[in-house]
C-alpha cells in the first residue's frame, strides 16, 4: 500500500543542509498497523507529512497503492489526501468557529457529498466516539480529550484507506490521553 525508497528530506538552515530524513525505505501493507517511535527531532512528523502528501521528499521515491506519487502536481496530491488519507494532527487543528459536528463535516463538504449523507455520517461517527451530546459545541467548549476525539472523527469520517496519526495523545495530559479511546478502536488495537 505504502512504499518508500531512499527517501530524503533536507532543509536548508542558512548555508547548512539539515537532514530530517536520510535514506528512509519502508513498506506498509493494507490493513497493517505501524508505530514509528523515536526521540523528538528524529523526523517522525516529517515522515508522516511525506506519507500524507503534505510535504515532498528532496530525494527518493514514494509509491502509494502502486502509483508513483513522488512528483505529482499539487492538485493531484490534494485529491489523494481528500479521497484516501485521514490525518490526525498532534495539535487539534479544529476550526474554532465551527461546532464539533461542523468540524467533522468539513472533509465531507470538501469531497462534495450531499448534505443529507454528510449529516447522517457525522451523526453516526459522533455517536461512535461518544460525542453526540457535544455535537453543537464549539472547540473552546470541549475538553482536550474531546477535541482530539473530534479530530479523530474528522480524520475517519471519509473512511480513508490510510489513517495517519501524529502523536495523537502527545498534546494531552495523562487523563485526557486515556480519554482518547477511539484511536485504539480505529486501529483495531485495544
Amino acid at each position: 500500500m505504502i512504499r518508500l525508497q531512499a527517501i530524503e528530506r533536507r532543509f536548508a538552515v542558512g548555508d547548512e543542509a539539515v537532514y530530517a530524513l536520510n535514506g528512509v525505505s519502508l513498506n506498509v501493507e493494507k490493513g497493517e498497523y505501524l508505530s514509528i517511535m523515536g526521540p523528538s527531532g528524529s523526523g517522525k512528523s516529517t515522515l508522516l507529512h511525506i506519507i500524507g502528501l503534505l510535504d515532498r521528499p528532496t530525494a527518493g521515491q514514494y509509491w502509494l497503492a502502486g502509483k508513483d506519487v513522488t512528483g505529482l502536481a499539487d492538485e493531484e496530491r490534494a485529491q489523494i489526501r481528500r479521497e484516501k488519507i485521514g490525518f490526525v494532527f498532534q495539535l487539534f487543528h479544529l476550526v474554532p468557529r465551527l461546532t464539533a459536528a461542523g468540524n467533522v463535516e468539513l472533509p465531507l463538504t470538501l469531497a462534495g457529498l450531499p448534505r443529507e449523507e454528510r449529516e447522517e455520517r457525522v451523526r453516526e461517527i459522533l455517536a461512535a466516539y461518544g460525542l453526540s451530546a457535544r455535537a453543537r459545541h464549539v472547540p473552546s467548549q470541549l475538553s482536550g480529550g474531546e477535541r482530539q476525539r473530534v479530530a479523530i472523527a474528522r480524520a475517519t469520517v471519509t473512511r480513508p484507506e490510510i489513517l495517519l496519526a501524529d502523536e495523537p495523545t502527545g498534546n494531552l495530559d495523562r487523563g485526557s490521553g486515556r480519554e482518547v479511546t477511539g484511536i485504539d478502536r480505529v486501529f483495531g488495537h485495544p
Binding site: G52, D74, E75, A78, H93, V95, P107, L110, R154
Partner: peptide
C-alpha cells in the same frame, strides 16, 4: 492561515 492549511491538508484544492 492555520484554517487554510487545515482545509488544504483535508484535500481542499487551491481553487476551492
Amino acid at each position: 492561515t492555520s484554517e487554510i492549511g487545515l482545509l488544504r491538508a483535508l484535500g481542499a484544492e487551491r481553487d476551492q
